[in-house]
Computed example of a mutant assay.
Amino acid sequence: MAFSVPIQESAPHIYISALPFTPTESHLHIEGLDMYKNTLKVTRGLEKTYRGLPEALRGHTNMVMAIAFSPDGSRIVSGSYDNTIRLWDAETGQSLGDPLRGHTNWVTAVAFSPDGSRIVSGSWDNTIRLWNAETGQSLGDPLRGHTNWVRAVAFSPDGSRIVSGSDDKTIRLWNAETGQSLGDPLRGHTDWGGAVAFSPDGLEITSVPAGSTNALWNTAFGSFPFIPFPPVMPEAYKFP
């Protein structure tokens, strides 16, 4: 990581400049430096052991508002106030291809599908978009229905549905293949949506608005009963 820039420009810099600066107690320094004696010689100031090196992922031109790892941990997706989405190699920190463009305002939420093949994003432009995580291509038209900016998005565990939370104080469910809205919006929150998530079996959704209690929704019923908690549940609102 410390020498990623020169190594990317010229592979021999692994030996010419990186190897001489390895920490003195590292295996590379002890075993490898003697093999390349005609390179740089560092006389003082070397570290004894490796230090943590934070790697800054650079490419966005405005604030980054949302990030997520792919399920296998190999990639990172980010959404920004520059209206774009970027994919990154989680090992090297390198940008993977061109930024994903389509939103007309800030990108405020991003998530990978469970199989890592798709990305869902939510935006200040009140829409949700689906993307091919390999090619960066937009998958169909934007998902429209929210009347205020989309603050949170998540895939169901089987990847067939998407849940979104918005500043219009509603939660919506979508078909992840067709982009069609599934039923009426889920109403009950009195403040804008802060976070949404599916249960592991995909039968329930939890949502957390700002400045309010979180809520549990049952996706198996067309009425989508709103159940706030931690208050005690009235009998009429308990699940069958």
Rank of each mutant, 00 (worst) to 15 (best):
D201F: 07
S181G: 11
L182H: 11
N175A: 10
W192R: 14
D168E: 07
G194M: 03
D184M: 01
N175H: 09
D184V: 00
A176Y: 08
L186F: 14
R172T: 01
W192Q: 14
D168S: 06
D201R: 08
G188A: 05
V163L: 07
G165M: 02
I205A: 03
I171M: 00
R172P: 06
D201N: 15
R187V: 12
D191R: 13
D168H: 03
T170G: 08
F198L: 06
D168G: 05
K169V: 09
L186T: 04
T178D: 13
P200C: 08
D201V: 07
Q180P: 07
T178P: 14
G179N: 12
E177F: 02
S181K: 09
G188S: 05
P200I: 02
S181I: 05
W192S: 15
G202W: 08
D184T: 02
G202T: 11
L173Q: 10
W192P: 09
S164R: 01
L203T: 14
F198Q: 09
L186G: 06
E177M: 02
G202Y: 09
S166Y: 11
G183F: 07
P185I: 00
T190V: 10
W174Q: 10
R187H: 13
D201Q: 09
G179E: 06
H189R: 01
R172S: 12
I205N: 04
Q180E: 15
K169R: 14
